[in-house]
Amino acid sequence: MGQDIVIVGGAIMGSSLAWWLTELGHPPARITVVERDPTYAACGTAFSNSCIRQQFGNPLNVAISRFGVEFIRNFQAYMGDDRVPPVHLHAFGYLYLAGDAAQAERLHQAQAVQAAAGAATRLMTPDQIAAEWPFYDLDGVVLGSHGPVDEGYFDGTTLFEWWRRLARDRGVRFVAGEVTGIDTRGGRVQGVRLADGTRLGAGIVVDAAGTRGAQVARMAGLDLPIEPRKRYTWVFEAAHPLDRDLPLTIDPSGIHCRTDGSLYMAGATPDPDPAVDPDDFAGDWSIWEDRVWPALAARIPAFEEIRIRRAWVGHYDFNTLDANAILGPHPGLEGFLVMNGFSGHGLQQSPAMGRGLAEWIVQGRYVSLDLTPFGVDRVLRDEPFPELAVI
């Protein structure tokens, strides 16, 4: 019953898929998760800011987030194990700020999509923003978009740990090793080879390798438009803390910042933003003084006096075609499935994406949400399925 499955990559996506496969009835003993670094110290999951939002411009991404919130709020019930703790969602909301007419029009269009998909987002004038959060300097802001419910921080580490733990308890095998080859015969996958010479036979191989997703695909002679891209995060304390939660504020400059307990967390994309080696986590920290702090202090004057507590560089598995996930079977090799290219949305999308791909494997089709538009076919046709609301 069921084919042997090898999942390449055991971080948030691989662990979600492994658990969902067992939940939907695939024999756990026929599932192997291969992870090159079982400490997970440098995976995208480890460096994630662990937030979820409804404010996407693509209706399918909104639906995915709506399920994500449902899963987070009902995590214990979904997991069905008395040991599992609840996952708290600190719903401070996201606040997108538009600095010109073109940005405002994008907010209008996106909010219409969100409302049609059932999200409770709202457009706000500068006066309305100032009334609710008087600490902003709104010079140059023409419009805002805010999610008052179901947006904010959640403990993604708990999801990750319990998906992995319960999958293992049910009989899924987690193997420490590096995949160095994909075995094929007659146009279909046969399994994988590891650096230590081990061969794992499988009728299905899932590429859930994050920033190494394109490397794994090339082992099978396939190309994916996925690149590791650096993303910077700083956690700081303010000499004059704000008197209320700071929504995850996306400034027109692209800098973003939010409440982080009693501290604050800011993030930025480097400019230029080249592809990097998956092991390159070095930072050009001049970006803070040159661009990030000036933008923060201009938008929130209370942040003129702050002290950095810690900072790090993480990676997105960035889909250069359309900044959207690539999910499902690759038509170039039967049995080779892709679960990659999440472009910074992976943690919040992991409940729905794990469920969806497990449905496709076990039931032969997507059941709960039709995730077909994320398929590899669009990549091969060079037809983007775009998501413009990328942070």
Rank of each mutant, 00 (worst) to 15 (best):
T39V: 06
P86M: 02
Y40N: 01
A116T: 10
Q128C: 07
G283N: 07
T198W: 07
Q3T: 13
D150E: 14
L97F: 12
V292K: 10
A389Q: 09
Q111R: 15
I306E: 01
D277V: 11
G144N: 08
L21G: 02
V313P: 03
G181E: 08
F67H: 12
A238C: 14
D260V: 09
T320A: 06
G68A: 05
G147M: 12
G93M: 14
A77N: 03
R218C: 08
D271P: 01
G191F: 11
L166D: 00
G9Q: 07
F75P: 00
R83G: 09
M219W: 15
P270C: 07
A352I: 14
D271W: 03
Y136Q: 02
A167I: 00
G44S: 13
G177A: 05
L17C: 04
A11R: 14
G2N: 12
W234T: 14
R122F: 04
N58R: 13
E151A: 05
I12C: 07
R231E: 03
R36I: 03
G354E: 01
G93L: 13
R309P: 00
Q114I: 12
H345C: 04
R355G: 00
H345K: 06
K230Q: 13
Y264I: 12
F135C: 02
R309F: 03
P294M: 04
V313Q: 07
G171P: 06
V62F: 05
F56L: 07
V235A: 05
R307N: 07
Q348S: 09
T157C: 05
V141L: 10
L337F: 13
V142A: 01
V235D: 02
I326E: 02
A266C: 15
P386L: 13
N49M: 13
S368F: 11
H88C: 02
V84F: 04
S262I: 08
F385W: 12
V206G: 08
H108K: 14
A302P: 06
V379P: 05
L222S: 09
G68H: 01
V175I: 14
G80R: 11
E304H: 13
V192R: 09
L166F: 00
V142E: 02
S253H: 12
A208R: 12
D251T: 14
I72G: 02
S65E: 00
E237C: 14
G314D: 04
A208E: 03
L369N: 10
M219V: 09
W288N: 08
D207W: 05
F342Y: 13
A217P: 10
T259W: 04
V338F: 02
L89S: 08
F67L: 15
H315R: 15
A325I: 14
L380A: 09
E227A: 15
